[in-house]
Deep mutational scan, measured.
Amino acid sequence: EWSVQQVSHWLMSLNLEQYVSEFSAQNITGEQLLQLDGNKLKALGMTASQDRAVVKKKLKEMK
């Protein structure tokens, strides 16, 4: 059960800090993070497919 802050730290740990402000603005918590798919990541401004791939891979490892 991650807070928005913990999601931000997680993104930073993946060197994806450029997305922290948008994820925070949308109040993405750990629970919501686990529901994100490629389209939702795109909607959050994650347009680079490599970045989405990293996030999806890491989320899969956490589930």
Rank of each mutant, 00 (worst) to 15 (best):
D51F: 03
S49T: 12
L34K: 07
T29Y: 01
L44W: 02
T29N: 15
K42P: 03
V4A: 12
D37M: 00
L36T: 03
A48Q: 14
Q5I: 12
R52A: 07
K57E: 14
S13C: 00
G38N: 15
Q18K: 15
N15G: 15
V55S: 01
S21H: 10
W2Y: 07
V7G: 01
W10F: 12
L33R: 04
Q18L: 07
H9R: 12
M46Y: 01
V54R: 13
Q32H: 08
A25E: 11
N39H: 13
D37L: 00
A48S: 15
F23S: 07
E17C: 09
Q26N: 10
G38V: 10
L11P: 01
L41N: 05
E1R: 12
K40N: 11
Q5N: 12
S8A: 13
L16R: 02
E22L: 09
K56I: 15
V55A: 03
E61I: 05
K57D: 15
L44S: 03
H9P: 00
S21W: 06
W10P: 03
G45T: 02
K42C: 07
T29Q: 08
L14K: 03
M62R: 03
N27S: 12
L14N: 08
H9Y: 11
R52W: 01
A43L: 10
A43H: 11
G30K: 03
L11V: 02
S8D: 03
D37F: 00
L14G: 00
Q50V: 11
L34D: 06
K42E: 12
K60F: 12
I28Y: 00
L33V: 03
E61N: 09
A25H: 08
Y19E: 12
L34R: 06
K63H: 14
L14W: 01
L14V: 08
A48M: 05
T47L: 10
K58M: 09
V20K: 13
W10L: 07
Q6C: 02
E22W: 00
L14I: 10
V4S: 10
D51E: 05
Q32N: 08
W10Q: 06
Q6A: 06
M46E: 02
L34P: 05
Q50N: 14
L36C: 09
S24P: 04
E22P: 04
G45D: 02
F23Q: 07
L33W: 00
E61F: 11
K57P: 02
Q50K: 15
A48L: 11
N39K: 14
R52I: 12
W10H: 00
S3H: 01
A43R: 12
K57A: 13
L41K: 04
T47D: 14
Q6V: 01
Q5S: 12
D51V: 00
K58F: 08
M62Q: 07
K40P: 03
M46Q: 05
N15Q: 10
Q6E: 13
H9A: 14
V4M: 10
S24G: 08
G38Q: 10
M12I: 14
D51S: 03
S21N: 14
V54A: 09
E1K: 15
K40G: 13
W2A: 02
N27R: 10
Q26P: 01
D51H: 09
M12Y: 04
G30W: 07
K56M: 15
G38K: 12
F23D: 06
V55M: 11
E1T: 11
V20Y: 06
Q35E: 14
K58S: 14
S49I: 07
F23T: 08
L59E: 05
S24R: 15
K57V: 07
S13D: 09
K42S: 09
Y19H: 08
T29L: 00
S13A: 12
K60S: 13
M46W: 00
L16S: 02
S13K: 10
Q50D: 09
G45V: 01
M46L: 08
K63T: 11
K60P: 03
V54D: 03
G30P: 04
K63I: 05
S24C: 12
K57M: 12
A48D: 15
V54F: 13
Q5F: 05
S8E: 14
L16E: 01
W10A: 03
V4C: 13
Q32P: 08
S24M: 14
L11C: 04
L34V: 10
N15D: 09
I28T: 04
Q6M: 06
S8K: 10
L11I: 04
G45S: 02
L59V: 11
L33D: 05
V20T: 10
S21I: 07
T29A: 13
Q50H: 15
L44R: 03
W10N: 05
I28V: 11
E17S: 13
K42N: 09
A53G: 09
D37A: 00
K57S: 12
S49E: 14
G30R: 03
G45Y: 00
K40Y: 04
I28W: 00
M62N: 01
L34H: 06
T47F: 12
N27Q: 14
S49Q: 12
F23E: 08
L36P: 04
Q26D: 00
F23P: 07
Q6G: 04
L34S: 07
A43F: 01
L36F: 02
M12E: 15
M12R: 15
T47K: 14
E17M: 07
M46N: 02
V7K: 01
V20C: 12
D51R: 01
K63F: 01
Q26S: 10
N27Y: 03
A53T: 11
Q32E: 14
L44A: 06
L33E: 05
Q18R: 14
L59F: 03
L44H: 06
Y19P: 11
T47H: 15
Y19T: 07
V20D: 06
M46I: 10
A43N: 10
E17F: 03
K56R: 13
K63L: 07
A43W: 04
K58Q: 12
A43V: 07
L11K: 04
L44E: 05
G30V: 01
K57C: 09
A25L: 08
V55F: 13
V20Q: 11
M62P: 06
S13G: 12
E31L: 07
E17I: 02
S13R: 10
E1C: 10
V7H: 00
M46A: 01
K56N: 09
E31C: 07
L33T: 04
D37Y: 01
E31A: 13
K40I: 00
S49D: 13
L11F: 03
S24N: 14
A48T: 12
Q26F: 06
I28S: 03
K58R: 10
L59S: 06
E61G: 07
S21D: 13
L41D: 06
Q5K: 13
G45K: 06
Q50A: 14
E17Y: 07
I28C: 01
E31S: 12
A43K: 12
I28F: 05
L34E: 08
M62T: 04
A43Q: 14
Q26G: 05
M12A: 14
